[in-house]
Amino acid sequence: MKVLHSALMLNPSSGIINQMRWEQLAAEALEIDWTVKIFSLPHKSLSAGIFEFSVKVLPGERRNLLRRARDYMSFRREYYAWLKAESKKYDVILLRYSTSDPFLHAFISGCQKPVYLVHHTLELSELRAMGGVANKFRIGLERICRARNHEASSGFIGVTKEILQHRPKIKAGDRPNFCYPNGVMVEDFAVSRREVEKSKNQVAVLIFVASQFSRWHGLDLLLDSIEKSKADFVLHIAGHLEEKDRIRAENDRRIFLHGHVTKKKLEDLISVAEVGLSSFALHRNGMKEACPLKSREYLAQGLAIYGGHRDIFPEGCVFYKEGRPDIAAILEFRDQIVQMDRGDILNQARPYIEKKKLLLELSAWLTATALK
């Protein structure tokens, strides 16, 4: 069975690029016929491989509103024309879901191969949380497109069970569905730790990482708790902050801001951390469950996690703690796990984060579902 997994991205984030790249590497390691592609604008920092670049829309040009609208249409027409031609080479097509996309339904309806839609969020809830006039229009469009897209598709794939539970109701009956969580190529990471004395009297070292801290990360809620606490600890924050959060963080001697960091610098920070922090405000996007890629990167380096949401991990596991953005509770969790060996944390988490295992399960499900 030959599979194409494709994503349409004007400017893909580093997280999405890594996720798709790891999937391709996992497919090659498993020796399965699986191709991953991101259709994007050309950029000097992006090379070929998993990328397919637009030749009709170029980045960096100044555009008025009319020109941006024309480019939006041109970019999508070009993508679906490319996808139509590519689909002839494959048995199954997986599409990372494109929200409020007026071209998606026409492609699915006209495609001669099974098409499965892959969802990474609750799209309508996320659009509502973003606010703004433009997103009101996108919400209306997505309401029209959503059920039609899934009625035309062959199945629904979500990265969490919550996303599966919120799949659209369609007239023709339910479609096959599968949970395919985010994962990493564990081999890409080194489980290392600088030689530091493991003692409850040692100052706790925490780390919170995001490319861009958004409302749903809940950094502001954590800062609220920190400002009320006199506890001694160190918190490293890597990523871009909103201005008001940056000012608050800079005023606390216990917090160290690093901005955007290199892979090597991030690995160094994680190597001395004792707890990695995950999102605390998914409720702002109408969600209770997530499987953030950054959490998988923490665990691949043997770092336990404290987060404010459900994940796909089993209840009671030692490497993930769900709780409020309360610095006292976070430090209590740190005291519980600080003596754990990083290799043990990785070994316990590995079945839930290993990309090769997750991809093999998805491939087996598709084989049983699409080709029956």
Rank of each mutant, 00 (worst) to 15 (best):
L65N: 12
N285Q: 11
A238L: 12
K89G: 13
L4E: 03
P59R: 15
I93M: 13
W365D: 04
D252K: 10
R215I: 03
H166N: 15
V275R: 01
V338D: 02
R310M: 02
I255M: 10
P292N: 06
K171C: 13
Y352A: 01
I38Q: 00
F75L: 12
V57C: 13
G343T: 11
A190L: 06
R253Y: 06
L366I: 12
G49T: 05
W365V: 00
D252N: 11
R62D: 15
G307W: 00
F178Y: 00
A328W: 07
E274T: 04
A368G: 12
A134T: 13
L124P: 05
K198F: 14
W216S: 03
Y320K: 04
R96A: 12
A249E: 05
L117W: 08
S40G: 14
A281T: 11
K89D: 14
E267L: 08
E23F: 06
V36D: 00
C111T: 07
H240R: 03
L360H: 13
E227W: 07
G131L: 14
H260A: 15
I247L: 10
G15Y: 01
R146K: 12
L25N: 10
K37R: 11
I327T: 07
I139Q: 06
A129K: 09
F137N: 04
S100N: 04
K37T: 01
K198T: 14
N177L: 06
K228Y: 02
S278V: 07
E242G: 11
L299I: 00
I353V: 06
L303T: 00
D326P: 06
Y180Q: 01
L95C: 15
I353F: 00
C111K: 15
R350P: 01
D268A: 04
G276L: 01
E227N: 06
I270D: 02
K200Y: 15
L346N: 00
N18W: 07
H309Q: 02
E123G: 06
R76C: 08
Q348S: 08
E78K: 07
K265M: 05
R77C: 13
L282V: 10
E151G: 13
K244E: 09
R63E: 13
I353T: 01
R248A: 09
A273L: 03
I38E: 00
R21C: 10
M20V: 13
F208M: 04
G173H: 11
F213Y: 03
N135K: 12
H119I: 07
A273M: 03
E332Y: 15
I330Q: 04
R310T: 01
K84H: 13
E61T: 14
L303N: 00
L360C: 13
L141K: 05
G158M: 00
L25F: 12
L221N: 10
Y116Q: 06
D33N: 08
M340V: 09
R128A: 10
I312K: 03
K44F: 15
E195N: 09
E61I: 14
E78F: 05
G173L: 10
I139V: 09
